[in-house]
Simulated assay, not measured.
Amino acid sequence: MIPFFRKKGNGKPKMEGNESTVSSEDLLNESADTASSEKQIDTDLSVHPEWTISKEDQYSFQFLNMECPPLKPNQISLSGISLQHEEAGQYQITAFIRSSLNKTIKLHETTLVLLDSSDNVIGRKTMDLEEAGDIPPRSSRPWNFHFTDQDLFTKDIPEEGWKLAFQLKPSSRKHSLDLQDSWEQSLAEKDKNQLQEMVEKLDPPKSGEVNFMGLKAVHKEEGDLHVTLLVRNGSAKSINLEQIPLQVEDANGEVIAKGGFTLKDFGVKANTSKPWTFIFPKEMVTDGELDLSSWKAYPVQKNAAH
């Protein structure tokens, strides 16, 4: 076995890969634990009982584990530590298996994918992860994953910015709600549950499709128009939206508001829907009474403007 870490100039270990996260419900096919009210969960280092490692490696794993961001309840993640090329077409990927669950879990045969920094799949392998042993509650277990040239789709393997991820079976991935942190913190649990139920009852978007569904439109006394939409991602990849040109039509099919919105760090995870409120200032809204008994909002192409 090759070393876990490459030596850095400052002598400190560094996470060379990124983190991928799935819900325990999707991966383990079991109901989520709703008892915990915590929004963020830190994981404690858990080295496999049969591993014998040096004090230096123990310190390095402890240091890197503390660098990992907290998990949300009912999440399991893979956090990339290092990807090293062994001889004869062998690759060793070291990553943390992290769990925020309040109980011990055990993984079984699972398909893993290796992604580059743009989330393109550059490798795939089915592995039996029972050897990783029992993963204690709220813990982070370092483990080595071995790939060969036959498991990889390219010879251009990045040393940094890659990601190891669980490949979920399509049948186990139901479309779910994704909330921005600000919404997660401000929405009442009752409202979150209503949104989740609505998302689950709706027909999911087609595979690879991204669309917008209207939830609420309010014309304020000062003239602003507040439009809440559900951004629905039917893709198997997360998307990041930076600029959205939107227009709104009223019950008569007339365009009553039009404008461009610049978003910061607005990502929508794969196979999820995320609500967001877009505020059209008074100057972007048609004068007079608006018939909002029915309405729709949708993105427009720049070249579609007349």
Results as ranks from 00 to 15, higher is better:
Met198Pro: 06
Leu225Trp: 03
Gly223Arg: 02
Ser182Thr: 09
Glu50Met: 13
Ser24Ala: 15
Leu71Cys: 00
Asn144Pro: 01
Asn252Trp: 08
Thr43Gln: 13
Arg173Asp: 07
Gly288Met: 01
Val255Glu: 14
Lys55Phe: 11
Trp162Gly: 10
Asn102Lys: 09
Ser82Cys: 06
His48Lys: 06
Glu160Ala: 11
Met213His: 13
Pro205Gly: 12
Tyr59Met: 13
Lys14His: 06
Lys125Leu: 04
Thr126Trp: 01
Ile135Ala: 05
Glu50Lys: 15
Arg141Met: 06
Pro70Thr: 06
Leu195Val: 10
Thr126Arg: 13
Trp162Asp: 08
Phe63Glu: 04
Glu242Lys: 15
Asn193Ile: 09
Leu152Cys: 09
Gly11Ile: 03
Leu107Phe: 09
Pro3Ser: 12
Pro158Ala: 05
Thr52Ala: 10
Gln40Glu: 10
Pro205Tyr: 08
Thr52Val: 11
Lys190Thr: 14
Lys169Gly: 02
Leu27Val: 00
Glu159Leu: 12
Gly260Ala: 14
Glu50Cys: 07
Arg98Lys: 14
Glu87Pro: 00
Lys282Gly: 10
Phe5Gln: 05
Ile279Asp: 10
Leu292Tyr: 06
Ser171Asp: 15
Phe280Val: 03
Asn10Tyr: 08
Leu107Met: 08
Val285Gln: 02
Phe147Ala: 02
Asn240Ser: 14
Lys8His: 13
Gly267Gln: 09
Val231Gln: 04
Val210Tyr: 02
Leu229Val: 12
Asn29Ala: 15
Ser60Thr: 02
Phe212Pro: 00
